[in-house]
Design a protein around this nucleic acid. Structure first.
Lengths: 122, 122
DNA sequence: CTTGACATTGACGTCGGTGTCAACGTTTAC
DNA sequence: GTAAACGTTGACACCGACGTCAATGTCAAG
């Protein structure tokens, strides 16, 4: 299938698909006229990428998952490298949460100081 | 005082000070030769800005605080507009925390699915 | 043949705060 | 007097995941 169909089926813009390819995450055969030619497997690849981006992964983070799928695994997460990324991501998220909680406390404290009557739930 | 001294005393680069001025947060008299001339109050202004940036405010968010100080208040947060920003920021932070918690759960779930043996604390 | 939908590559814009450089004028110290 | 340190404005670079436009090529339907 060509890029437009892949875009429709995955809900991803053609711009993004070319961007993914530019970064080595997606590869496409070319037809005689130079058009990109995708297979059914690429639908899965793109879906995997989007699912990961959606939960805060960077594009680079998705690379091991894509590689994992290319090696024939049914799930992008079922390779050692992917699991490592999962765990690293969990740690990153935890750290971000810690930072936000600290910020929240700091802001609430400043508010309380400059506006003693203001209640802050939490 | 000139910009270099203000930079030293606040720990903020001259680049940033000019940037703040460009965005209307800082104002400086000019000496005969065109150099910026700051007062003691400006040290407080800049400190206020940095304190707020540090806890995640955008530069734009700091504007009410700066205005508040200019009106003579001892604290940038002791004006109604500032309090509103405080409260908005608290809501934003809470929302970010909610998003992160949801992501964490999602990632943990994906990990558990592709790696049943992997323990996830939390 | 023409129109329109779709394809290609390349490049700039977004957002925020700042680093860094250029090309130049001023002040300070020796 | 001269060099070093400081000031000025203006502009480009960065990060990340795209949107969007330009200029051009390709193909199917009327």
């Amino acid at each position: 299938m060509r890029i437009g169909e892949l875009a429709d089926r995955t809900g991803v813009s053609t711009r993004s698909l070319r961007y993914y390819e530019q970064h080595g995450l997606l590869r496409a055969r070319r037809t005689a006229n130079g058009y990109r030619d995708y297979s059914e497997d690429d639908v899965k690849l793109v879906s995997e990428i989007r699912a990961l981006l959606k939960v805060g992964f960077t594009l680079e983070d998705t690379r091991p998952f894509v590689d994992c799928l290319r090696r024939g695994h049914s799930t992008g997460g079922s390779c050692a490298e992917s699991v490592e990324v999962y765990e690293r991501k969990l740690n990153e998220i935890d750290e971000e949460i810690r930072v936000l909680l600290a910020r929240r406390a700091e802001v609430a404290a400043q508010l309380a100081q400059s506006c003693p009557g203001c209640f802050v739930r939490g």
